[in-house]
């Protein structure tokens, strides 16, 4: 159980070396951030993993809420499939509810999912361009494409709110489905913000010269957004 205390490991312990990158003009190592890109990347990658872990808890609980309420079908009000004129079903405004709530179109979530995946692929392309020290436009081009696809996804998500065949008051299915949509929208907006930064910074040439690390964490987050969007889209679309 006891810990061995080592002898003096080294007498020249102070000679530790920091990895300093040469100050590339305009590259992602401005004066304010005085660590090597490698050191910073180690921290930021861990941070992104932890952030994704926290977000995963949210995703799991959302999906749990979906399946729990669907299984429980409390008062026959999951999607009012069992509600008849005689059954005591009312919506959240006290109006009688007869028969099943109309399902949301499957196409919106599928389109959003595809757009999020395409956007993540473009971030990936931007990352590999940055990694192989390609020209500025090879990074900023895919970044802009990713941003455009992300904005398209956001627009489709907002459109879906307007064409939904039900409102929040129509029972469990409607509640969780709209919560999924809200959650997806929040994630897409966050990713949109990040991609805006990626694009503006790539356009300024910040990701040349081998400093691809920040692009990599954006790619990790983009892939996570694509995954979580897909999970919600598939659960919401196919497990009514």
């Amino acid at each position: 159980m006891s810990l061995t205390t080592s002898e003096h490991e080294s007498t020249d312990g102070g000679e530790h070396h920091h990895e300093y990158l040469p100050a590339v003009e305009g590259a992602e190592n401005p004066g304010g951030e005085h660590e090597s890109a490698g050191e910073r990347d180690k921290k930021e990658r861990l941070m992104i993993w932890l952030f994704i872990g926290g977000d995963l808890v949210i995703l799991i609980l959302e999906v749990f809420a979906w399946f729990y309420l669907r299984t429980l079908d409390s008062n026959g009000m999951w999607n009012a499939a069992k509600c008849t004129a005689s059954a005591n079903c009312v919506d959240g405004l006290g109006n009688p509810l007869i028969g099943p709530v109309a399902k949301a179109s499957i196409w919106h979530p599928m389109i959003i999912m595809s757009l999020a995946i395409i956007s993540a692929l473009f971030v990936w392309a931007a990352e590999s361009a940055s990694r192989r020290k390609a020209a500025k436009s090879a990074v900023s081009g895919p970044a802009l494409a990713a941003l455009v696809f992300m904005i398209a996804a956001i627009v489709v998500q907002i459109l879906q709110f307007q064409v939904l065949p039900f409102t929040t008051v129509d029972g469990g299915y409607a509640s969780v489905y709209e919560f999924f949509m809200g959650s997806t929208l929040a994630h897409l907006l966050l990713m949109g913000f990040i991609l805006t930064g990626l694009w503006t910074r790539a356009a300024k040439g910040r990701y040349q010269g081998g400093t691809f690390h920040r692009v990599r964490i954006m790619r990790m987050f983009g892939v996570w957004i694509a995954i979580s969007t897909s999970v919600l889209a598939i659960v919401g679309g196919f497990f009514v």
């Binding site: 809420a65 729990y68 309420l69 429980l72 079908d73 409390s74 008062n75 026959g76 009000m77 999951w78 999607n79 009012a80 009312v90 919506d91 959240g92 405004l93 409102t167 929040t168 008051v169 029972g171 469990g172 299915y173 409607a174 509640s175 969780v176 709209e178 919560f179």
Partner: peptide, 16 residues
């Protein structure tokens, strides 16, 4: 917004 996650009568569950 009137969702019903936690209202039993409207398809939710206090147990959730």
């Amino acid at each position: 917004t009137g969702t019903s996650f936690f209202v039993n009568q409207l398809g939710g569950a206090g147990w959730l």
